[in-house]
Design a protein around this nucleic acid. Structure first.
Lengths: 149, 149
DNA sequence: ACAAATTATATCGCATGCGATATAATTATC
DNA sequence: GATAATTATATCGCATGCGATATAATTTGT
């Protein structure tokens, strides 16, 4: 009897399906985002900018739960692609002012069909998708609202 | 009114919290897995081998939803660390026979505390964790049982 | 005012993750 | 039984993702 190791079995991990689902979804997005010349991470950055038009790197890091060492090079690539402008904030020169270019703004219309395309590939009932969303945000928020250990 | 863009807002994406939760969890594991000299991906490979003692790369790819171009170099690192042996299968020389070394087998006992440590860091009620698990596997299985498009 | 602490970003090194492609071993086909 | 198709793994190039560390700008403390 190996019951001692039961909790170590792959099928008893909650984290593994989260990890596998994340990989799966990134793969699925690729097909649609290639047409926009965006990667998944670049896409979520653009999504924030389509709502804000202007942001600094710290804000993007917080909203997207990423670190600056991921975003700094990624923002440079978005700049090279002509989707964003990166300038120093006039008031506080430590801050980067990230703004959309005309091309970057126009890209939003091209992206309009992406959410539905992805939704069509995820075979969950609407209530299940909603429940998944709710629990995941609880998991993520549990992180933010935690006092330091 | 920007309702046209409503579906594109970050907060209306199901995929983003999956992605963010996956990153978060990998970060959390690091603290515990560093002591075992394992990364998260290496850890889940070891988890399969602790159950199987013997597997080939294709099997690992299927179980872990990864591609050979991720696993091939990773398996070499596990071999360098002395946790696994990689040999060619006698019967079919295309297959790699991945087996645990003595050290690799012993590592399982050191890993026994990891699941509980992680569970303590994830602030979900047991029913919510169970529901999350169920829905994620439905999402992942929906993938496998799909006929080609 | 000026040194110290803080803050925002940048850089480095390592470990994935994957599409595309290549190669070697086996199987299928005629 | 030679060739074609298939299968399992390997290699290449690119894009993250992060801990650790460095740097420049601002704020704090006195």
């Amino acid at each position: 009897m190996n019951d001692k190791y039961e909790a170590l079995r792959l099928k008893n991990q909650l984290c593994f399906p989260i990890y596998a689902a994340s990989n799966l979804i990134t793969r699925k997005y690729k097909r649609f985002l290639d047409e926009l010349n965006l990667t998944y991470t670049q896409y979520i950055v653009m999504m924030v900018l389509w709502e804000q038009e202007r942001a600094n790197e710290k804000f993007l890091c917080e909203v997207l739960c990423l670190k600056s060492n991921t975003l700094t090079p990624l923002l440079k690539k978005l700049q090279e692609k002509g989707y964003i402008e990166i300038t120093k904030d006039k008031g506080d020169e430590r801050n980067l002012a990230i703004t959309l270019t005309k091309t970057g703004k126009e890209l939003q219309d091209q992206a309009l069909s992406v959410p539905e395309c992805i939704a069509n590939e995820i075979h969950l009932a609407p209530e299940e998708a909603a429940e998944l969303y709710r629990i995941l945000y609880k998991l993520l928020d549990g992180e933010k609202n935690r006092t330091e250990d």
